[in-house]
Every structure is written in C-alpha cells, then in structure tokens.
Amino acid sequence: RVIAMPSVRKYAREKGVDIRLVQGTGKNGRVLKEDIDAWLA
C-alpha cells in the first residue's frame, strides 16, 4: 500500500498517474505532490 495524503491521491488521479509507480521521497517513503510533478516531468 502506498503512503500518501488523500489530496495527493486526488492530484495523481486528476493527472492520470498510477500512484503505485511513483517513488515517494517523503518520510517513510510517503508520496508527495512534488513526486507526482517530478514523475510527470
């Protein structure tokens, strides 16, 4: 299970990103909004 705040999950869904593919850089591997942006870049 991916650790991410609900707002980040929603952001990823809106961008069409599968959050399971994104490498989290936050505490304990948490996926941050910046990680979604970096994955899209």
Score class of each variant (00 low, 15 high):
G16K: 10
V2A: 12
K15T: 08
V22L: 09
R30D: 07
K10E: 14
Y11V: 07
G16F: 07
A4E: 05
S7Q: 10
V2M: 06
K10I: 08
A41N: 14
G29F: 06
E34I: 13
W39I: 08
T25Q: 05
Q23K: 15
I19K: 00
Y11W: 03
K15R: 12
A12D: 01
A4W: 02
K10T: 07
L21A: 12
Q23T: 13
G16N: 10
V2S: 09
N28Q: 13
Q23P: 15
G16S: 06
K33R: 11
R9E: 11
R20I: 08
A38G: 09
R30Y: 11
S7Y: 10
K33Y: 08
R20A: 13
W39A: 07
I36E: 00
A12S: 06
E14M: 15
K33G: 04
P6Y: 05
I3E: 10
L21Y: 14
D37K: 05
V22P: 03
G26V: 03
P6D: 13
V31Q: 02
N28P: 02
A4P: 05
A38R: 12
L40E: 05
L40H: 06
G26I: 02
R1P: 14
D18Q: 07
K10G: 06
E14I: 13
L21N: 09
A4I: 08
G16Y: 07
K10D: 12
A12T: 01
R30K: 12
L32D: 05
V31E: 00
D37N: 08
D35H: 02
V17D: 00
I19R: 01
A38E: 14
D18I: 06
V2W: 02
D35V: 00
W39H: 10
V31K: 04
K27M: 13
N28H: 13
K33V: 10
A38I: 13
G24K: 03
P6M: 10
R30H: 12
Q23A: 11
V17S: 01
I36Y: 00
P6A: 10
D37P: 00
L40G: 05
R9M: 09
G29Q: 07
R30I: 12
A38D: 14
A38Y: 13
K10Q: 12
V31P: 03
A12L: 02
V22H: 01
V31W: 01
L21K: 13
T25I: 02
K15E: 06
E14W: 09
L40I: 15
D37E: 06
E34A: 12
D18K: 05
I36K: 00
N28G: 12
I19V: 07
L40A: 07
R13F: 12
E14Q: 12
S7I: 09
D35I: 00
R1G: 14
V17M: 04
A41W: 10
D37M: 05
G29M: 08
E14A: 15
R13S: 12
G26F: 02
R30W: 11
Q23M: 13
T25D: 02
L40P: 04
N28I: 05
T25E: 02
I3S: 08
A41H: 12
M5F: 14
L40Y: 07
R30L: 13
A4F: 02
R13V: 13
V31I: 14
L21Q: 11
E14H: 12
V31Y: 02
L32G: 06
V2H: 08
K27F: 11
A12N: 00
N28F: 15
M5P: 12
E14F: 12
V8A: 05
W39N: 04
S7W: 09
A41F: 15
G16L: 07
V8N: 03
I19F: 04
G24V: 03
G24M: 02
V31D: 00
I36H: 00
R1M: 08
S7L: 08
I36F: 00
A41Q: 15
D35Y: 00
I36S: 00
G26Y: 01
R13E: 11
S7F: 07
D35L: 01
D37V: 06
K27S: 11
